[in-house]
Design a protein around this nucleic acid. Structure first.
Lengths: 341, 341
DNA sequence: TCCAAAGTTTGAATCGTTTCATTGTTACGA
DNA sequence: TCGTAACAATGAAACGATTCAAACTTTGGA
């Protein structure tokens, strides 16, 4: 109803020119102490709040950064988002958050929205094949940084985590604690993350001549899927002595099935390690060893890479790959006759 | 670098006036077929994207709604957010999401940001005491709807869930399945939600002359806290036959402690029910009964209430209270000698 | 052929900032 | 007292969209 107060009202109320008010807001040093006080008082009395649309229109660019993630509910992304917000705040930008929910059309809507908002740049964990759209954005001066996905060519910067290294870490840890008959439990290896983690595990196993690695396909990446793999294992007998699951949910499912239904002991009979280090890992019946991804670094670095590209159109693109971290808990405590390798 | 193409460029390229281009975008019916096609082609060829800042500046209002939640990682809020986004999309608005992380200063920053963005309105799950700020916002024509908090006076609309009813549902269900010696496990009752749930449970227990309800304080609302309550119970003996936990994490902790460490059977020896119906409830060792909050309805209704206030300055404020829903799973299956009643 | 009504198109004015060339003021050394 | 440099303050122009009164075109009936 009542049109909100503008810089003009403030200027009038403080008996100065509009330019002066603007200077108070943006370049306080250019304004004398007396004037500044008068203007600030006026701002306070009138309850003036800068209209960002007008500022942005004049400036040609906004102070916001678009961030599109696959699933805000996923702790991995939640953590990345928070780190990105904090890093952006440090450089005076705000993050507009979009949750694509693995849905290409939602993703596309967010790209549209952010483009209309003239965001400084875009951080995205892509669902669909958005390379064409991203190319267009770049042409129009909106740089993009890929999150949790290695840029295929060198057209974009990206931040990602080395899943192969993570897989290696996990398997190596099982081997180091004396296990030799390992099993990998993971969803369809068509998922890149799963394939990479498996590959890393295989690499580690090849280092020990007497070690073997069996691959068990799971039907999805859930607790229930883990449970059925566990049941299957027990039914057929011939158990491995170390299990590496492609994520923590699977691991928790396997743990449930082995310990509850079948009275096997973890880690004495079978060691178990997951991936992601979700909150539940630490409070599982047997606290679960896992591989933690450096989410804070991901978010922070993504913002930094974007800043580089915003500053100079021709900044070199960089693909930053982080190495995950092993978190040891009870579920992989060394077996009794441990022949550490 | 290259200033992006404006409506003026499009107009020039299509040999029409700027007003015509605007009409094509906003009132296609006012424009002849021939012209429309020409303009649309020009838009396509130039890759024109509307500058929302300019549109907003002229319109005096944006098409965005601010939403500040306590924790996007919390499945409760994740679900509310998604529902709100969908409902907003239906009415042509976008949601700007802010995660206060239970932090009053982050919350305050988001309010500032959203105010500068001239959001249509604000949905907020407040951390600190923001009533003063909200009052100011309202004066300036930015309506607010409280989420997951009952408005204390009738100055605001709000959407919330009846925790008392939820507590009643849970306890009543334990009673209905034959349990009589109940226990309530919950963090400090200074948390409103906890206090309300307890109160509802007490109400239900009073309905059965031979039923009792014991209150067990927990140190926080986590799995580990639940586990220690469980351990304590077993150590002291004198077990209840039905336990109602103020949230699912506590319940899972209690379940771990009872079933694993102490070889008690759920639901045969003790029935167990949680609150929130998190994803893990269904995949617990014994699938956990719980109370589900109507998060989708919360998000949707919040947007609807806000729309009412946006439309008319003097819309009556409404406090909509939803009733949660009982989800029965194995953890509360009827005891053998069930005297339903 | 003319006129009115309906249908299209035009383009200047406007929104609230920031920018910047210009003007006004002050201080100080010559 | 004057000139000049440093400092402050001014206000018109610009950003890119929407709006709307006015101008123009078409249609169809008299």
């Amino acid at each position: 109803m009542n049109r909100s107060t503008s810089i003009k009202d403030v200027a009038h109320h403080a008996s100065v020119a509009v330019g002066t008010v603007s200077n108070v807001l943006n370049y306080p040093d250019r304004v004398s102490q007396r004037t500044k006080e008068r203007v600030l008082r006026a701002i306070d009395e009138l309850g003036f709040v800068r209209n960002d649309a007008a500022r942005q229109l004049r400036a040609g660019q906004s102070r916001t950064i678009g961030l599109i993630v696959l699933d805000v509910g996923n702790p991995f992304f939640t953590s990345v988002v928070r780190a990105a917000e904090d890093a952006a705040a440090l450089q005076g930008s705000a993050v507009l958050l979009g949750d694509s929910g693995h849905n290409a059309s939602r993703e596309s809507n967010y790209i549209d929205l952010f483009q209309e908002q003239r965001v400084q740049g875009l951080l995205i964990s892509p669902v669909g094949d958005v390379t064409d759209r991203l190319d267009l954005l770049r042409e129009r001066g909106v740089p993009t940084v890929l999150v949790d996905r290695l840029a295929d060519d060198s057209k974009y910067s990206s931040v990602s985590v080395d899943d192969d290294a993570g897989g290696y870490l996990a398997a190596r840890h099982l081997l180091d604690t004396g296990r030799r008959r390992l099993a990998f439990v993971g969803g369809p290896t068509s998922i890149r993350q799963v394939a990479d983690r498996l590959q890393g595990a295989q690499r580690a196993v090849k280092e020990e001549p007497d070690a073997t690695l069996e691959v068990l396909d799971s039907d999805g990446q859930t607790v229930l899927a883990g449970r059925s793999v566990g049941n299957m294992l027990v039914e057929r007998g011939d158990l491995p002595d170390g299990i590496f699951c492609a994520n923590d949910l699977l691991a928790l499912g396997v743990m449930q099935s082995l310990t509850m239904t079948h009275a096997l002991r973890i880690p004495e009979d079978i060691a178990l390690i997951g991936y992601d280090d979700i909150d539940f890992a630490v409070s599982a019946v047997v606290p679960l060893s896992s591989i933690r991804q450096p989410t804070e670094a991901l978010g922070r670095t993504a913002i930094e890479l974007l800043a580089e590209e915003v500053e100079s159109e021709n900044a070199k693109h960089r693909a930053v790959v982080f190495t995950p971290e092993l978190v040891v808990r009870q579920s992989t405590a060394p077996a009794e006759g441990c022949s550490a390798g």
